[in-house]
């Protein structure tokens, strides 16, 4: 009986995933509104176009990135202000954006996301008539 219990515990140990993962870095962002929509720019140095992942799940915009081309084994660190290799940030998005037409581009470590507004939410100019 006792033997059986230890065996059970051992298998459970293996099942537990590597929960203590390094916390990802939080990229600084600029959020800017234009008439057509919202522009989000995030600084993610070291992340290439291939390693960036932008996704929308329900009403949450998730930005993920992984630093490409990390220094190899032969490089020993002397001084580090930045540690970590992943970026992550998430934003809740209101209903006024058309989530099917979101555009994202990556340039020199800056991720730019454009969230267009739904047509009915765009500002309309009201003509003032002179009586």
């Amino acid at each position: 009986m006792a033997e059986q219990e230890t065996k059970e515990l051992a298998t459970r140990e293996e099942k537990v995933p590597a929960a203590r993962k390094e916390r990802p870095m939080v990229p600084p962002v600029d959020i800017y509104e234009i008439a057509e929509g919202l522009i989000v720019v995030a600084d993610m140095p070291g992340v290439s176009k291939e390693k960036v992942d932008v996704r929308i799940e329900e009403n949450v915009l998730e930005i993920r990135g992984e630093i490409d081309d990390l220094p190899g084994e032969e490089v020993s660190p002397l001084y580090a202000e930045l540690t970590g290799k992943e970026y992550y940030r998430a934003f809740t998005i209101g209903p006024e954006f058309d989530l099917d037409k979101v555009e994202a581009s990556m340039e020199a470590g800056c991720l730019r996301i454009f969230l267009p507004k739904v047509e009915s939410e765009k500002p309309r100019k009201i003509e003032i008539k002179v009586a």
Partner: peptide, 12 residues
């Protein structure tokens, strides 16, 4: 932000 590394022949 700056990081510095070292190999046998170079400083990076």
């Amino acid at each position: 932000v700056i990081n510095i590394g070292e190999t046998n022949d170079n400083i990076l």
